Simulated scan of single mutants.
Amino acid sequence: MGITQTATQSRIWALTHAPRGGIDVASELRRLMPRDRWLLELLHEHQVFTTEQIAALGFDHLHTARNRLVLLNQRGLLARFRDGVRPGSQQWRWTLDLIGAAYLAARNDEPEPKTAVIRRRINRLASWPGLAHQLGTNGFFVDLAAHARHTTGAQLGVWWSERTCRTVTGELVRPDGHGLWTEDGHTCSFWLEYDRSTEKAHQVTAKLDGYAALHRATGLDHTVLFWLDSPGREASLRARLAAHPAVTSGTLAVATAGSGTEHPAGPVWAPLEATDRVRLAHLQPPST
């Protein structure tokens, strides 16, 4: 089997054809370490991570992560891609390649994936306009998970992708993610809106209509978090969000953070009904 680099919009290293004799998942199982299987599951749920994100999630050293990822790429389990940027190099982005997708399909008793289908998926992901948003959303949860790895009493108990969120929210609202964060005995369950200033303020505010409808339909009282890319963006949105009927009635608890550089577990969250910032775990559900 050959892994080649293609000169498209992005530099992509992935299988171009199936191995001679077909995909031998059984043989690959003998070489998969528990951390490899964990990573395949993670990519199946969340699509794409950078090298640094994967290292933060499951490795003690960046170079160890790089070496393992390259090996998994050479074996056709993972594909990697990045844009050609100058000066310097962009971080590699990692996603499932043919053998990795075949392993998951076999485990789930699903049809074996076709090389052309996987290749198209990788190409679409590499050129996807929403890639930066997806990496940013994943990075938010990576920061929490990495913090929990090294902090006693901290845990990211739930981490759902947008796709998994939709199994609960349906068409009412489209959160970028859902999490359950615990630290020092305090817990916050939340929906995440990861904002990169690509939508107008009224469009962002209108999302609360969907969260209010979801609350009425299901009774879920998760706090709605708006992770914003600048203090200016936060300031421009807070008044609009605070005036929403679902907020003024106490139906929804909403908090914002607007530096874009602080750690999401820290005291960066400003509930709409307060001025002081608190740690993520200290955010409270709606009062009604």
Rank of each mutant, 00 (worst) to 15 (best):
H244N: 14
A270L: 12
P87C: 11
R216D: 14
A242P: 03
W38R: 14
G130A: 09
L96C: 00
V168Y: 13
W191N: 10
L125A: 07
D109A: 15
I3G: 11
G76K: 04
W227F: 08
Q91E: 13
V268P: 03
I54N: 04
Q90D: 10
L131H: 08
R233T: 01
L192V: 02
A55E: 01
V25K: 08
D195K: 00
W159K: 02
R35T: 10
E183Y: 05
V117T: 15
A242C: 12
P267K: 14
E273R: 11
G210Q: 14
G177C: 01
D184N: 14
I118D: 03
D83T: 14
S27H: 13
D176F: 04
L144H: 04
E193H: 03
Q47F: 09
V247Y: 04
P175Y: 07
L77K: 05
A116F: 10
E112A: 13
L252Q: 03
Q284S: 13
E273I: 08
D221P: 00
F226N: 04
D209V: 07
T16I: 12
L96G: 01
L104E: 06
S27K: 13
W181Q: 01
T198S: 07
L125H: 06
P175A: 02
S127Q: 13
E162T: 11
L208F: 07
R233C: 02
A55K: 02
S89M: 10
T152W: 09
D109L: 01
V173S: 02
L43R: 12
Y103A: 05
V85P: 03
A132F: 07
G232E: 15
V117A: 15
R279C: 08
E183D: 09
P19D: 03
A7V: 06
L57A: 01
Q53E: 06
M33S: 14
R120G: 05
Y211Q: 03
A146H: 10
T223H: 01
T248I: 04
R121N: 06
H46V: 07
R35Q: 13
L39I: 10
L40Y: 12
G58D: 12
V278G: 12
L15G: 09
T198N: 02
F226T: 06
A145V: 08
S230K: 05
D24C: 01
A265P: 05
A206H: 13
S287R: 12
A246Y: 05
A265D: 13
N108L: 00
R124F: 15
Q9D: 10
Q91M: 05
S127P: 03
M33H: 15
A132L: 11
P286D: 00
E234I: 02
A201N: 12
L96H: 01
G21D: 03
R82T: 08
L32K: 04
D60N: 14
D143E: 11
G84C: 04
W128V: 01
R86I: 06
H282Q: 14
D221E: 14
R238P: 04
G250F: 11
R163M: 08
W159S: 00
S27W: 04
A65H: 07
G139N: 11
G153E: 09
G250Q: 07
H147L: 13
R66E: 15
P264A: 02
E262Y: 09
A265G: 12
A235V: 12
H46R: 12
L228W: 01
